[in-house]
Design a protein around this nucleic acid. Structure first.
Lengths: 111, 111
DNA sequence: CCTATATTTCCATTGTTTTGGAAATATGAA
DNA sequence: TTCATATTTCCAAAACAATGGAAATATAGG
């Protein structure tokens, strides 16, 4: 599996402003919020918000739905799940010791 | 809640080399691997590995245990859980629509 | 003490990301 | 068509992160 989807997602979230945007959209999932509302809530200049929304969208973490002259952005919640799965992949190599929160999705290959 | 632990963790993982190191350590959890073994496995020059391990350790994603002249690094699996919880915090604002994978840890505050 | 091994610190170079003003584009309403 | 609103693109300055060679430090064994 290519790691780049994960690096892209993590890099998109690894920035205070973008993390705030994403978490705001998680709270407002699944419907989302228009760009202007996000800008007002987080007190961000337009160009700055636009830049960050593009980074999040390019990583597949949010989607944009144009509606009249506003654009609603919404969080793709599934992306968090994929990311966790990727990080925990083959956790503990099948030797036991996985923490209780983690349900191994892929049952112990070789390595 | 301050977002910086999350930004630090995400930034630490948002880099191909560090992500490879972390995932290698997840597979070898909970015991970990010595720095030299990681370097050999991932074909990394010493200073580069050392730099990246420090970033991971500073973010609390790995811990270092000195043993003789080698140092074993191991993944802190719980950090992934904390991160997911933070990202999904108050998902969907209690209005239903959360994806099946997510168990709301904190039951719907105001917002 | 001396040597070999494990790992780190120092540091200069190179590359990447973030920021926001000004100008551009798109849409809807009067 | 003209105006106001929503959002974007352009761009250059400033800030930040990654890389790896050479030298330093630590430890174990003979």
């Amino acid at each position: 599996m290519k790691t780049s989807f994960a690096v892209d997602s993590l890099a998109a979230l690894a920035q205070e402003t973008r993390l705030n945007i994403f978490r705001l959209l998680v709270r407002h999932a699944p419907s989302g919020l228009p760009a202007g509302t996000i800008a007002r809530r987080l007190r961000l200049p337009g160009p700055t918000l636009s830049f960050h929304l593009n980074v999040l969208a390019a990583a597949g973490l949010v989607r944009a739905d144009k509606n009249g002259r506003s654009i609603a952005y919404s969080a793709n919640l599934d992306s968090v799940n994929r990311l966790t799965g990727f990080l925990m992949e083959n956790c503990c190599g099948g030797r036991g010791g996985c923490p209780p929160f983690w349900e191994p999705a892929n049952p112990r290959p070789k390595e």
